[in-house]
Amino acid sequence: MLIRKPNPIRSSEITSKDNYLNRREFIRAGAASGAIAGASLSAPAALAAVIPDEPLAKLADIRKPSPFSTDETLTSYDDVTTYNNFYEFGTGKDDPHRNARDFEPQPWSIKVDGHAENTGTFHLEDFVKPHTLEERIYRMRCVEAWSMVIPWVGIPLADVLKALKPTSKAKFVAFETLYDPKRMPGQRRRVLDWPYREGLTIAEAMHPLTILAVGLYGEVLPNQNGAPLRLVVPWKYGFKGIKSIVRIRFMSRMPQTSWNLSAPHEYGFYANVNPEVDHPRWSQARERRIGSGLFAAKQPTLMFNGYAEEVASLYDGLDLRRNY
């Protein structure tokens, strides 16, 4: 069963809208360069790109430590970058790091539309530059019952969304991954209904734990981990952390999400980590911490992945068994 949504690229192929967007980009770029010129009087280093167009370059001016960071042992860089799911580059967990090697994440732009005042197409740099990069060391719990501890570098999603000025109609935020089978070989097979789509309620999106990550271990985000821009929502299963984002849309109704479309009785919209609500085919009560060794026992999974204190109130009155 294929539910095809109208292709979002179509409308931008209409010349008048294209010109319109270009005009806006031009104005924005001008404003941004003005801001840089001002800043450069005091700090010449600010002229360098926030996200260097060079694989694995060091990111500058990262604010840390964050009160939101965990002090648990970090999962090794090697494990974080060679073992993950990113079906756009293959369905095996070692596929992404092999098949994303030649992916060029820059130049990159993000289309913002829906119920917001500040819509249009933004260059990655303009999108990120106004905000301070922060290191956030988060637990990551995959729906497949394994977990990691990852030092992300990113910006709070709330800061970005506020700058886009959502209107009162915006109740949800939807995200889309790049769809380009030439660059993302995994998309040549219809394993999922491409492009990959995810979504959050506006309250979840505005929560201070939610970030847009641009880096890992103090460096530019590797391709296999969702370069150049990905979502990280630490109290939800990993698949909510949509990678290589090209579109952000403010919606009044709950958006469709890829895994929910693929298997609705197994993956819900919320996908909050919950040891009491099992996946229909396996238990979610315990998890294997990657890097803990061959003979290490699985550890208990915590409610909301251990972030209950921060986020439980978002779901007051919601039946979490039904809204999995």
Binding site: D78, T82, Y83, K93, W146, R288, I290, G291, L294
Partner: peptide, 8 residues
């Protein structure tokens, strides 16, 4: 190598 998740 057995990779990041040798048990699996």
């Amino acid at each position: 190598r057995l990779g990041a998740n040798p048990v699996e």
